[in-house]
């Protein structure tokens, strides 16, 4: 059997002493798109923070295996170098550094980790141009300081552009749809779909159905109160949109 790309077992995590994740189990194969939905405060963003290694999130129990490696042993930069990418809900600004220069540093750090020499400058720019066309991002944005003065939509497009350049094995889109108008949403989703390959996987974290109209998931999970309480196919998205999250909460209560 093909190894799972990501395997999360009984994951418990807390922030400032408060337990947020209370036993998450999740398995993702290469080639799949998983949606993680759930009401506010369910632990969706905590899950992405734990996967990417944000310091203030403390794993108290459980394990995460990524591509055969124990993810929890790795510092955040090594997780990124191993192929985990997160599209941030609130991308930061770095004044004075253009997106292209930022990515050049990132790409070469990742290459160094894998024992490769720096990307030759000419080839790098060629690759950047290809990814620019693929994701439909404006050339002008890439030469401006990273995210400085970008609109919400431009920031998210820039995240997807970075994802295209870094070619991760696992992309986590953390509330990427928040604050996007419909055109930006389409561009972002179009980029994600074009980047889908049999050897990578995507986790789409979202509260709403909107984005999932454009990025069609293979599997949908509902995260509630720190646990995955329901897993089904894409039809679950429509059901959640129609009925909201209350019936899930009811189901969970009944089971308890």
């Amino acid at each position: 059997m093909e190894g799972k790309l990501l395997r999360i077992r009984n994951l418990h995590a807390s922030v400032e002493g408060k337990e947020i994740l209370k036993g998450v189990n999740l398995e993702i194969n290469a080639g799949e798109v998983h949606a993680i939905m759930g009401p506010n405060g369910a632990g969706k963003s905590t899950l992405s923070s734990v996967l990417t290694g944000r310091e203030k999130f403390v794993v108290t129990e459980g394990e995460i295996e990524f591509n055969g490696k124990n993810l929890l042993d790795l510092p955040p930069e090594d997780r990124a170098r191993e192929g985990i990418f997160m599209s941030f809900q609130y991308p930061v600004e770095i004044p004075g550094i253009s997106t292209v220069n930022f990515l050049k540093t990132a790409v070469n750090e990742i290459r160094k980790y894998h024992g490769l020499p720096p990307y030759p400058a000419g080839d790098f720019l060629k690759m950047i141009r290809q990814k620019m066309e693929l994701t439909g991002i404006d050339n002008k944005l890439l030469n401006r300081s990273l995210n400085e003065g970008f609109s919400g939509g431009e920031k998210k497009k820039n995240e997807i552009f970075q994802m295209a350049v870094l070619e991760p094995k696992l992309a986590i889109l953390d509330e990427t749809d928040s604050g996007l108008d419909i055109d930006a949403l389409r561009t972002v989703a179009g980029g994600v779909n074009k980047l889908k390959r049999p050897d990578n996987a995507t986790i789409v974290i979202t509260h709403y159905q909107r984005l999932l109209d454009y990025i069609v998931p293979d599997v949908v999970h509902v995260l509630y109160d720190g646990r995955i309480v329901k897993t089904a196919g894409k039809e679950l998205v429509a059901e959640l949109e129609k009925k909201g999250y209350d019936w899930i909460k009811e189901e969970v209560k009944r089971e308890l």
Binding site: I94, E109, I110, Q162
Partner: peptide, 13 residues
């Protein structure tokens, strides 16, 4: 911390 973590997440120490 956000800026540093953002860089970390892109593979930069």
């Amino acid at each position: 911390e956000d800026q540093i973590f953002y860089c970390n997440q892109r593979g930069i120490s």
